[in-house]
Simulated assay, not measured.
Amino acid sequence: MAWLPGCFLCRFLLGWVGWSAPGLAVEVKVPSEPLSAPVGKTAELTCSYSTSVGDNFALEWSFVQPGKPVSMSQPILYFTNGQLYPTGSKAERASLLQNPPTGGVATLKLTDVRPSDAGTYLCHVNNPPDFYTNGLGLINLTVLVPPSRPSCSQSGQTSVGGSAALRCSSSTGAPKPVYNWIRLGASPTPSPGSMVQDEVSGQLILTNLSLASSGTYRCVATNQMGSASCELTLSVTDPSKGRVAGTVIGVLLGVLFLSVAVFCLIRFQKERRKRPKETFGGSDLREDAVAPGVSEQPLESEDSSNGLLERPSSASTVTTKSKLPMVV
């Protein structure tokens, strides 16, 4: 066991020499805070290093998408043997502010920043035979994107006493936008107890709806890059008023039908009265016709006792008329 202290001492001495000897260590420094750049603008990712640059000096910038391990990084550009080689999908937009990057600074310049540029960038310096203490630096880049125009939708039972949910969401936006619902117009805003909104999800819950809840609602999506909005109209119905309206309409239709029937009946009676009376031709037979030579007046006899005329009974008169022949 006596060899252990000696071996440990050797490793300690070698480490102390490596730290103290100039030009033998490679150390990369990058900003500790994440960087951000507006979409369409230029981003500058600073990377500095300390080493004794020699013929074997090499620098590489690479990129890995959010949520993926560093081992899956893809090269953007690298510098070796005095030459700069852009590569990958960002080759046309990537360059170095210092070229050649042999003065201790190797800042990456990325033009026309796009949402797909958001992720982690790796600055890696390799300079054999210098050994590494920290030869790799990581920078997180956020691309700032204004929220896109959100889409508004609603669901639920939009009748008096019911509940409705209004939803609002933007497909793009970085950082993630917050949502705020407001009601347009001069109508009174529903009471706070009946309206609850979530600024993160963009949902507005309306409970115990009344006719006063009807109106136009606007959702505004906002982040540090700007804002966008959408609107929808909420119409609250009252089923009881619908039933009353149906009853009133039924009564009105009944009255209208009855009025039309009465009008038609009165018109029919008037038309009937205006028709001419029926006339008879010379060949028509009538029961009360009188034969020629027979007087229509009943026979009269003089009563010698009282001087009055005596009229035959109606029956005798009718019988006499009925027995006479009709002459045409």
Score class of each variant (00 low, 15 high):
residue 5 P to Q: 09
residue 8 F to E: 12
residue 8 F to Q: 14
residue 18 G to E: 15
residue 25 A to Q: 15
residue 28 V to I: 08
residue 30 V to R: 03
residue 31 P to L: 08
residue 34 P to M: 07
residue 43 A to H: 05
residue 49 Y to E: 06
residue 49 Y to W: 01
residue 51 T to P: 10
residue 57 F to K: 13
residue 70 V to F: 07
residue 71 S to L: 13
residue 81 N to R: 12
residue 84 L to I: 05
residue 87 T to Q: 10
residue 94 A to G: 02
residue 106 A to K: 02
residue 113 V to T: 09
residue 113 V to K: 05
residue 115 P to D: 04
residue 118 A to V: 07
residue 121 Y to A: 09
residue 121 Y to I: 12
residue 140 N to C: 07
residue 140 N to T: 15
residue 143 V to K: 05
residue 145 V to W: 00
residue 154 Q to A: 15
residue 154 Q to P: 10
residue 160 V to P: 09
residue 165 A to Y: 10
residue 168 C to W: 02
residue 170 S to W: 00
residue 170 S to H: 01
residue 171 S to Q: 15
residue 172 T to L: 10
residue 173 G to L: 11
residue 173 G to W: 00
residue 179 Y to F: 05
residue 184 L to G: 10
residue 197 Q to V: 09
residue 198 D to A: 08
residue 198 D to T: 01
residue 200 V to R: 09
residue 200 V to H: 04
residue 203 Q to F: 00
residue 203 Q to G: 05
residue 215 G to P: 05
residue 219 C to M: 04
residue 228 A to E: 07
residue 229 S to D: 03
residue 232 L to P: 01
residue 239 P to W: 00
residue 240 S to H: 01
residue 242 G to F: 00
residue 247 T to E: 13
residue 250 G to E: 11
residue 250 G to Q: 13
residue 259 S to T: 14
residue 261 A to T: 07
residue 264 C to Y: 06
residue 266 I to T: 08
residue 274 K to V: 03
residue 281 G to Y: 00
residue 283 S to W: 03
residue 284 D to A: 14
residue 287 E to C: 05
residue 288 D to T: 05
residue 295 S to K: 08
residue 296 E to V: 05
residue 299 L to K: 06
residue 302 E to V: 08
residue 305 S to E: 09
residue 322 S to K: 15
residue 323 K to F: 06
